[in-house]
């Protein structure tokens, strides 16, 4: 446990020292929230968003940026790099386990997602009249399952990729798909209906997040899909994962 604490401390330091990681996972979504929030039209309820303001409608997609960056981009790249460079192997020769390093990376991902979610919710509420999630329990559930599904996919990439390069080769398309279906590149109201429906079932499940944030219970099927993806990808990843 002592070793795990030390590893977590050092890995957190390395995460913060690598300027790009906190920037893309926490600062970027928050900055976008502020930019869109400062546009007056973005704060007006609109019929096409079901009487939500644009910023309210778009906030879950900003959270998708954090989720996608952290879980399917940074996590697999870091793990594949550590494996390729023999960091995991060296750790295996000490009383500490390479599993502790994996766990530390997961904790950092979770903490990043939590910090970003809290910041988006709090800043949205205080500065731009975005109501707090109206279904806190449903929102928490949707966020937890969506996060679990994406982390599992990220671990799967880390498991099948032999090198850091191939991890990135696999992670980037996955990352872009998650971002696209999460309505980050093009807000979802501009997408054809069938793409929006696909997005409902694509991890992390932006529709479930939006529903719970704005007052509808998240659809059980949406949540169920996330749980299935998390379990299937997680089980496959743990079967395929190699330490060296």
């Amino acid at each position: 446990m002592h070793a795990f604490g030390q590893i977590l401390k050092i890995e957190t330091r390395l995460f913060l020292r690598d300027f790009g990681s906190p920037l893309t996972t926490v600062v970027l979504p928050l900055a976008l929230l502020v930019v869109f929030g400062l546009i007056p039209a973005g704060r007006q309820p609109e019929e096409q968003f079901g009487d939500l303001s644009f910023i309210q409608y778009f906030a879950p997609s900003l959270l998708v940026i954090t989720l996608a960056m952290s879980a399917v981009n940074i996590l697999p790249t870091v793990l594949a790099t550590y494996r390729e460079r023999g960091v995991l192997r060296r750790l295996a020769t000490t009383p500490a386990s390479p599993a502790a390093l994996l766990a530390a990376q997961l904790v950092i991902s979770l903490a990043t997602i939590l910090v970003s979610a809290v910041l988006l919710i709090v800043v949205g509420r205080l500065a731009f009249d975005v109501p707090l999630p109206r279904r806190p329990l449903g929102f928490t559930l949707a966020l937890v399952l969506g996060t679990a599904a994406l982390l599992a996919l990220g671990l799967l990439v880390a498991a099948v990729a032999r090198t850091a390069k191939s991890a990135q080769g696999l992670a980037v398309p996955l990352f872009m798909a998650v971002m696209f279906f999460g309505g980050v590149y093009v807000p979802r109201f501009l997408l054809p209906d069938f793409l929006v429906r696909i997005g409902d079932y694509t991890p992390p499940g932006v529709q479930a997040l939006l529903d719970a944030w704005t007052g509808t219970s998240p659809h059980p099927l949406h949540l169920g899909i996330m749980a299935v993806v998390a379990l299937a990808a997680g089980a496959t990843a743990s079967k395929l994962f190699r330490w060296e």
Partner: peptide, 20 residues
Amino acid sequence: SQLPDQLRVAEALDLYASFY
């Protein structure tokens, strides 16, 4: 067997010392 790029010498040794 390498180490993370940004890890400093003293940090690496302190970390590994904590395992024993």
